[in-house]
Design a protein around this nucleic acid. Structure first.
Length: 428
RNA sequence: GGGGCUAUGGUGAAAUGGUUAUCACAGCGCUCUGUGGAAGCGCGGUCGUGGGUUCAAUUCCCACUAGCCCCCCCA
C-alpha cells in the first residue's frame, strides 16, 4: 500500500493567478499600457532581488517596511539580498546604473512587477502582490506631479471605476520640514500621554506618522495639529499651489488632506492617494504616490528631482469584481472540432489540425479520445459550429465529413479542400 | 506582533462519539470503435497536521499549519 504524498500549499499570503482570472489581469494591464505608452512612458523590468542596502537607504530604516516586512536572504557568497518590497528604489537604482541620466529628461518609466512584504494577509493585501509603478525622473516641475496624478486618475477611470477621489497634501522638503517637525514636536510634547503606544515610538522616530494614526485618541489629537501647509516655505508652497491649479484645470476632483503622509521616507512635497468615496480605510487605497526629489541623491546620484506613483493590481481587480465591472473574455470560442477515428486518421490529424491553425481558424480536438461519441459530446459542449469527422474510411480515400452542429447536416468533402470550405462557410 | 471566524472528494454543502461518511455540481470511465445535447451505472475522501480525552474520535479538547477577516501598516 503506497501512502499518498502530502500536498504542498502556496506560501502564506501568496496566490496563484488562475486561468479564469487572466482576463482581469489582461484588461488592467492593457488599459495601463495604452494610457502610459501614449503619454511617453517606457516599460522597465528590474530584478526581483536587490541589495538589502538599497531599501535601507531609499525606503528608510525607521519605516515598517524595512523594519519588519522585508524578505531578506543571504547568498552563498555572503551578500544580503532582499525581495523588493516596492518598485521605486529599484528603478532608480537601474536609472543610475544604466546611465539614464544622460538621456533627455524627464525619463518616464513604468513597470508591472511583483513586490514582497511579509505582513499579515487580508483583503486586498498579500505577501506577494503586483504593483503598477510609474515614475517621471528628473523634472521638478509641478506640471509633472499634476500629470502623474491626472494619469493615475485616468487609469482608474479607464477601468470603469467610478466615484474615486484624489487625496492630496504637501509634506515640504528639507528646508521647511524641520521647522514644521519642531512645531509638531512642541504640540505633541504635552499631549503625548494621551496618544497610543505606537505613537509614543513614532514621536521619537518618525513624528510625521502621528498625523495618520487611526487610534481614536490620536485622531482627536491630530485634529488640532498645526498643518503643514502653513509651514511650507515659499517655494514648496508655490509648488503645491500650482499642482492644485493644474488639477483644477484638468478637472481632477481632489480633497486636501492635511493628515496624509507616507510610509516611505523618500517623499518630499506632493503626496497623494486615490481612494473610493465610500471607504477611506488604508487597504482601499488604489493608487498612492508623490514626489521624491532627494531619493536619487540618497542613492549616490546627482540632484534629480522625481515623482511617481504605484497601484496594487490585486486590489484593483478586487474592486472591479466588487463593482461588477465586466471585462472582455480572452479566448474566442472555437469554431471547429476535429473528430478522429482509428489510428490512420489520428496520425493524419496532427497536420490537418495544424493547417487550420495556419489558416487562422480556431479549432479544437481531443486526440486522446477514441470514441466518436465522446468527441462529439465535447464538440457540443464547446458550442462549435462545425465538427469534422475523420474516420478510417475517410483517411483512406482522403476525404472528411463536415458536420454542421446546429442542423446535423453532413457532407463529405475532399481533404485538400476542407480548410477553404470551412473558412468559406464561417464567413457566410 | 495582537485578535475573531473557519478547515469534510476538484467545487459547494450535509450528517455523525460506534459496521461501508451523505448529497449536488464538475471530472474521468463504461453502457456505446461511425454520430452530440439525454439517461443509467461505476471510479475518486486514510474528514488540514500532530497530540490528548475515550473501549471507540471525522465528531469533544489542545497545539500547530493554512484560509478568510480585523487591528497595526501598506499598494
Amino acid at each position: 500500500m503506497s501512502k499518498k504524498e502530502k500536498t504542498i500549499q502556496a506560501p502564506k499570503g501568496m496566490q496563484d493567478i488562475l486561468p479564469e482570472d487572466q482576463k482581469y489581469w489582461r484588461y488592467v494591464l492593457k488599459k495601463a499600457e495604452n494610457l502610459l505608452e501614449f503619454y511617453g512612458f517606457e516599460k522597465i523590468e528590474t530584478p526581483v532581488l536587490e541589495s538589502t542596502d538599497l531599501f535601507f537607504r531609499a525606503v528608510g530604516e525607521s519605516t515598517d517596511i524595512v523594519q519588519k516586512e522585508m524578505y531578506t536572504l543571504r547568498t552563498k557568497g555572503g551578500d544580503s539580498l532582499t525581495l523588493r518590497p516596492e518598485g521605486t528604489a529599484a528603478v532608480m537604482r537601474a536609472y543610475l546604473e544604466n546611465g539614464m541620466n544622460v538621456k533627455p529628461h524627464p525619463v518616464k518609466l513604468y513597470y508591472v512587477s511583483p513586490m514582497f512584504r511579509h505582513d499579515q494577509p487580508q483583503k486586498g493585501r498579500y505577501r506577494q502582490f503586483f504593483q503598477l509603478g510609474v515614475e517621471t525622473v528628473g523634472d521638478s516641475s509641478e506640471a509633472v506631479d499634476a500629470e502623474l496624478i491626472f494619469l493615475a486618475y485616468k487609469f482608474i477611470e479607464s477601468l470603469g471605476l467610478k466615484n474615486y477621489n484624489v487625496h492630496i497634501n504637501s509634506i515640504g522638503d528639507q528646508s521647511c520640514r524641520p521647522a514644521y517637525l519642531k512645531t509638531l514636536k512642541d504640540y505633541y510634547k504635552n499631549r503625548l500621554k494621551k496618544s497610543c503606544a505606537n505613537c509614543k515610538v513614532r514621536f521619537k522616530e518618525n513624528i510625521l506618522r502621528l498625523l495618520d494614526c487611526k487610534e481614536e485618541a490620536c485622531k482627536e489629537l491630530s485634529k488640532e495639529t498645526p498643518q503643514f501647509v502653513d509651514f511650507l516655505d515659499e517655494e514648496c508652497h508655490a509648488h503645491f499651489k500650482h499642482v492644485l491649479e493644474f488639477l483644477d484645470e484638468a478637472k481632477v476632483p481632489y480633497i486636501l488632506n492635511p493628515h496624509l503622509v507616507r510610509g516611505l521616507d523618500y517623499y518630499t512635497r506632493t503626496v497623494f492617494e486615490i481612494l473610493p468615496e465610500e471607504n477611506i480605510g488604508a487597504q482601499s487605497t488604489l493608487v498612492a504616490g508623490g514626489r521624491y526629489d532627494k531619493l536619487i541623491e540618497l542613492l549616490g546620484g546627482s540632484k534629480t528631482p522625481s515623482s511617481g506613483w504605484a497601484s496594487g493590481i490585486e486590489r484593483i481587480i478586487l474592486e472591479l469584481k466588487e463593482k461588477n465591472i465586466s471585462v472582455p473574455e480572452i479566448k474566442a470560442k472555437p469554431k471547429v472540432f476535429l473528430v478522429q477515428l482509428g489510428e490512420a486518421a489520428k496520425r493524419k490529424s496532427i497536420l490537418l489540425f495544424e493547417s487550420f491553425r495556419k489558416a487562422g481558424v480556431d479549432t479544437k480536438s481531443s486526440l486522446g479520445r477514441d470514441s466518436i461519441k465522446s468527441q462529439l459530446r465535447i464538440a457540443n459542449r464547446l458550442e462549435v459550429k462545425f465538427a469534422l469527422i475523420f474516420g478510417q474510411k475517410e483517411a483512406l480515400d482522403d476525404t472528411i465529413i463536415l458536420r454542421e452542429m446546429d442542423t446535423g447536416i453532413q457532407e463529405t468533402i475532399p481533404l485538400e479542400k476542407i480548410v477553404d470550405e470551412v473558412k468559406k462557410r464561417l464567413k457566410s
